[in-house]
Design a binder for these strands. Structure first.
Length: 426
RNA sequence: GGAGGGAUGGCCGAGAGGUCGAAGGCGGCGGUCUUGAAAACCGUUAACCGAAAGGUUCGCGGGUUCGAAUCCUGCUCCCUCCGCCA
């Protein structure tokens, strides 16, 4: 969330940033509620102050055996008024909270203005589209032809948007997880963590999924727990309500988790294949940094994700998400879009974001700056490195051959138990 | 599932209705000493709101009281023992 004080003092700037995002936030209501809250607060604090001093006086008098009944009677009334005011203060705070928690982050100055996906400028590209002397198939055909992806049985076991992987398909998924984790740990210096895949409400609120996006989540009946939509949630919340040591920053974590998304409102979109699933695997990088270095960290994070695609020889481009396409908690996001030959399209395969102090403020993640002795919020960042299912798609579609087999990229062969080509497995 | 015990500052830990934001220790920071360091000694060191005055915070919520870290109550989490179990 944004700093309430900052919003109050920079209301016009916040208003224009919300307009850039195309967000209709009632900031007048915010100001009104904020003022109300402060009015009540002032009144209640004056009364508390009185109660505190008089109560001490009562203590002193009693100790000296003097009469205090008059003071006690008066304070009894004051306490009653405090209680009433406290209730309305809580009401005012709750109302204010409702607004502040659904105000998205302010886009960074380097975020271009735009209203949607089509306005995202391409920052750079790498590699080339593979050439085919035949019509490349989409991965759902390749996968079914090779008997490594079974969409019908996935749907039978659970439902739409669930897939059964088989044989070399299952192994490919597992190899990619290992390949990415190993690379980020041993070459990029991340610390691997393995987290719970269900989290509580506080964790979801900390990273910004709640309260606004409840309908995108799977909730476990009979509990307060939700299935994670991304490792960002458990990993960022590792340090919730902590004051970190400045010398420990930056902290770099990498984590494999399955991700569960309800995909509400995406009916009819990407209904075939692995692109949009209710459950998919992902390797995620998460960083905690000092404010002054977070944008450098975003650049290196993005490069770390790109390196995976380079090693796999997959053509991709990097786009800078425009103001209208930016996620709720993010101040700036680079998306990596991999070329998928069978669909003749670039598809998002990684999303790398700097949240600045937006999540840290919600989640209470801070550090003490030695120079000033003061406590400050850290900046949090994260990026997919990469989405596993979509990487499988990119490999199947870009490495397919005329005879229907799929060549395994060299870098992945050591993780494939020596398999270098996927052929039909009956 | 049954029976007990616990939750206090960055960490450990005392405190059992009033002057307690909280003893003591560790850690951090500053200093004395030292060629330098260590040790020793001295000092200092919680967060949040507020321009300040002041207010809030001892797991979380409710209550009792003029006054609650301290009493009552509900909840959460942790630990020990028994049962069950991958």
């Amino acid at each position: 969330m944004l700093d309430i004080k900052y919003v109050r003092e920079n209301i016009d700037h916040v208003r224009s940033k919300m307009e850039e995002r195309g967000q209709d936030i009632d900031l007048d209501k915010f100001s009104e509620l904020e003022q109300k809250r402060r009015d009540i607060l002032q009144e209640v604090e004056t009364l508390r102050s009185e109660r505190n001093t008089v109560s001490k006086e009562i203590g002193t008098r009693k100790k000296n055996g003097e009469d205090a009944s008059e003071l006690i009677k008066r304070m009894s009334e004051v306490s009653g008024r405090i209680k009433t005011l406290d209730d309305s203060l809580k009401e005012a705070e709750a109302a204010l909270n409702e607004i502040i928690m659904i105000i998205p982050n302010l886009p960074h100055e380097s975020v271009p203005f735009g209203t949607g996906e089509e306005d995202n400028p391409v920052v750079r590209e790498w590699g080339e589209k593979p050439a085919f002397d035949f019509e490349p198939l989409p991965h759902w055909d390749i996968g079914e032809n090779l008997n490594i992806l079974d969409f019908a049985r996935g749907a039978k076991i659970t439902g739409a948007r669930f897939t059964l992987y088989r044989g070399a398909g299952a192994m490919l998924e597992r190899a990619l997880i290992n390949f990415m984790l190993t690379m980020h740990v041993s070459e990029h210096g991340y610390t691997e963590v393995l987290t719970p895949f269900m989290v509580n409400r506080e964790s979801m609120t900390g990273t910004g999924q709640l309260p606004k996006f409840e309908e995108d989540l799977f909730k476990i009946t009979g509990t307060d727990y939700y299935l994670i939509p991304t490792a960002e949630v458990p990993v960022t919340n590792i340090h919730r309500d902590e004051i970190l040591d400045e010398h420990d920053l930056p902290i770099h974590y990498v984590s494999y988790t399955p991700c569960f998304r309800a995909e509400a409102g995406s009916y009819g979109k990407d209904t075939r294949g692995l692109i949009r699933q209710h459950q998919f695997n992902k390797v995620e990088m998460v960083k905690f940094s000092k404010p002054e270095t977070s944008y450098e960290e975003l650049e290196s994070l993005t490069l770390n994700a790109e390196e995976v695609l380079k090693r796999l020889g997959i053509h991709y481009r990097v786009v800078n998400l425009c103001s209208g396409d930016l996620g709720f908690s993010s101040a700036k996001t680079y998306d990596l879009e991999a070329w998928m030959a069978g669909q003749d399209a670039y598809r998002e395969i990684s999303s790398c974001s700097n949240f600045e102090d937006f999540q840290a403020r919600r989640a209470g993640i801070r550090f003490r700056r030695e120079e000033t002795g003061k406590v400050e919020h850290v900046h949090t960042l994260n990026g997919s490195g990469l989405a596993i299912g979509r990487t499988v798609v990119a490999i199947l579609e870009n490495y397919q051959q005329k005879d229907g087999t799929v060549v395994i990229p060299d870098a992945l062969i050591p993780y494939m138990n020596g398999v270098d080509i996927i052929t039909l497995d009956k």
